[in-house]
Structures are given as C-alpha cells and as structure tokens.
Design a protein around this nucleic acid. Structure first.
Lengths: 223, 223
DNA sequence: CCAAAAGTGTTTGTGCTACACCCATGT
DNA sequence: ACATGGGTGTAGCACAAACACTTTTGG
C-alpha cells in the first residue's frame, strides 16, 4: 500500500518541442544543459509545473522565460513518465508540440543566445533525458497531422505562396508531392484563399500570396 | 519566480477509461465515489502515481487494486491538468484508454461489486472531476482509431465472427456499415484469418470464427 | 535572350459505394 | 417448413495519381 506522504509521489514537469522551418529544413529549438550528467547535452525547453498553473500554461511560461518566445501554437503531444527518465528526481513530463512560423520575430532572437539553438531534426546533437524519443514522437505526430489537418499553416506566416506550403509538406514528409494535384486539392476544398497580393522581391516571377480560410487548424484530409 | 519547495508543484495521478461491449452497447467502467463533494458521483478508476512507478504501471496497479482487472489493453489517452480539476489538491492526471474483450472474465466480476459498475456511454451518471470530458475524449479517440487501426480486436475475444467485429464498428461509430464491403476489405488486407473453427451454440447457422493476423493492433486504413 | 520559378488540365486507374439473393442451421 | 443470421459478386462513380508545357519576371 502506498502511504500518504506527498513526496513519495511523482512531480510534474513540461517540455516543449518547438519546430520551425529554416534553411529548407525542419528544425527544433534546443537548450544547452549545464548540470552533470548532461553538461554536453541539449534538451527541449521545459521545467516544473507550478501548483497554480496548468501544464499548458506552464509550458508557455517556461518557453517565454527560457527562450523569449510567446504566442506559439501549442498542442499536447504525450506524457513521458518512465521511472528513470530524470536522474534528478521522480519527474513525469507532459510534452507539448509547438510550431513557429518561418521568419517569426522570436526565431532569430534564439540565434543571439548562447544557451539556445535551432537544430535540424536530421542532425540532432546529444540529447538529455528521454528527449530523443520525445522529439521522434513529435516529428511523427507532425508528419501524421499534415495529412489530415491544416496545421502546416502554423509553420508559415499568415500570407504565403502555395510553393512555400508545398515545401513544408515535402520537407517534413521527406518526399516529393505533385504540384498540380496539391494546389487542386487545397483550392477545391477551399482551405486556402488568394489574398490578391503577390510576393515581392523574388528574383523571378512573383507568386500569388494565399492565406488559410480558417486561422485555426482544421481537420480535413489533405493527402 | 517559482521556489524550490516541492509541495508547491503539481502531483501526478492516473485514470483509466476502460471500455467493453456489453448488451450491444459500448460501456465504461466506473467507480462510486464516497467523499464529498462527489458522494453521489461516479469516476473512472484511478489514483496517485507513486515515486517508483511509471504512469502506465500505476494505471495497471490501480485498475487491479480497485477493480481486479489485469492484462487489459492500455494506451495513453491524454493528460488533464486544469488547475481546478480536483477539489482535493493540485493533481494532474495522465489518462489511459483501456479495452476489455467482450465476455472477459473480469468484466463479470465487476457486477458483483457494489462500488463499481458498467455504464453505457450513452447514459452516463453524474461524473466526478473532469471525467465527463475525459470519457468524451476517450470515445472520440476510439472512434477515430477504429478507422485506421485494428484496435477493435481488443474489444473481442481472440476468436470472433465477422458479424461480431462489424457490430463493434457499428455500435462504436453509431452508423451502419455494408456487410460485403466490410468483409471484403478485411480479407483483402489479410487483417483477419479464418481459424477453421465455427461458432457453437448459435440458434441458427453457425458463423466461421476468425482471428486477427497480428495480436497487437496495426495501423491500417480500414474505413 | 536566358534562367528560374509560377501556373495550369486531362487522362488513367484504383478503390469506395451501393445494392439483393441464396445458404445453412435449429426449432 | 420456416425463421434467423451467414455468406457472396458486380457495376458505377468519385477521387487520386501521373504527366509536360507555357508564362512571367529579373538580370
């Protein structure tokens, strides 16, 4: 039988796996660890959940405190609770999946910090805790969700070209997609609308800018 | 800034939403609450996660302790952590979705207890905490998963008739499915195999018994 | 005028949907 | 013999996939 002394129970933390598209790659936001045994490791930003905040609120707070990022799209990913996952104590972590639009203000801010960095998901450094698993789960989830929702919109600015949107799909899924079929589907389902504006500054023919019909991700079969 | 005193952080619990098919309905396992303010309410079985067990291990332990059920199919559902969800303290709950085969030994045992009962998901009693939401999320998840996995097999005994399997789909999804198309698909994808045996004791023509080709649920589009 | 990316339709095949009758068994 | 659920095939349709060339712009 378990006793009732509180410190015999697990405590809760949260970690956020934030993705963005940079340099034509899917990249994750990581923070440099300082304490042993993780002195040369990196980890997704996170921390303990306070007694007066929900895990999601804590995730947003910690993300802001540690990386200055705010207003990030977040959704619950999964909860990681293996007994030995944290050498510092018995901590269960509620992980969130975060998406940051290409070129978002905060994305560049990260570069100016020595304790944080963006890493391509294909070339991750040594990771602390079970964050390697966590990031794999996040990538898989993102890949699946691209197929049946419009979350991809959260990886792009409000206005984008259809080529940019297609690139998100191709890079995250790691395979080519037919341009004509892709555009046909999105337009037929009325998921995106032309804004009437055009891309500026391109070295070549300027592409039309579109926006998603709904600001929040919808559940629709796309692929 | 958060201080480092442990009791200012959230503690972790787990709850299990166990489904089974009974009486041609999808039913959930609930336990009667005794403490106020939930004296007349019911709740999914659950409890606190100990310092030396993972949430899933805790879920299995609690399920066994509280309802004598063991060897249940479990998968993580979601984590519920609103600040005010538990009037007794700051508790975050990792919820699990459990499936019990029709006619499993343990299912009947529940009937002999005064503190536990099966309730059809369509006629739930007053529920404690946020378990009403939790069960809705679980039902929705089960409905979605029927479409793209073979989890339905976990709601049936190892050998079953195709009509029984179809009934699981029709009842959980709440709509009719074409018998010929359903069988065609399952057989074409080789998800089920005839065992060569036949149903006994039926009042009419005995149906052939099938089993899933893989004991563990697979990810395949079925609908 | 050349390079680079944008934009645009049609055809083919596959898979989903709809649909009705005979069969085997127990009473 | 009859009532009950078990078991089977085909045809139409809609959607997905494959596929290549012309257009617009900047340099």
């Amino acid at each position: 039988m378990a006793t009732s002394r509180k410190y015999q129970f697990a405590v809760i933390a949260t970690d956020v796996v934030v993705f963005t598209m940079r340099d034509n790659k899917l990249q994750v936001l990581l923070m440099k660890m300082t304490k042993e045994p993780y002195a040369n490791s990196w980890a997704a930003p996170g921390g303990l959940v306070g007694a007066s905040e929900s895990p999601e609120t804590a995730a947003r707070r910690l993300l802001k405190e540690k990386t200055c990022l705010a207003n990030v799209y977040l959704e619950q990913l999964a909860t990681f609770g293996e007994v030995d996952r944290d050498p510092f104590g018995r901590v269960v972590s509620v992980a969130y999946l975060g998406l940051l639009p290409t070129g978002a203000a905060g994305a560049a801010t990260v570069d100016s910090r020595s304790d944080a960095a963006w890493y391509p998901t294909s070339k991750l450094p040594k990771l602390a805790y079970d964050h390697s698993t966590m990031i794999s789960v996040a990538v898989e989830r993102l890949q699946n969700k691209l197929g049946y929702t419009t979350v991809a919109g959260q990886l792009l600015p409000k206005e984008f070209t259809l080529s940019e949107l297609q690139q998100v799909y191709e890079i995250v899924l790691g395979r080519a997609i037919d341009k004509r079929n892709f555009r046909k589907k999105l337009l037929a389902l009325e998921l995106v609308q032309p804004t009437g504006r055009r891309q500026d500054g391109g070295a070549h023919r300027p592409a039309a800018l579109y926006r998603f019909a709904d600001a929040k991700p919808q559940v629709v079969n796309i692929l």
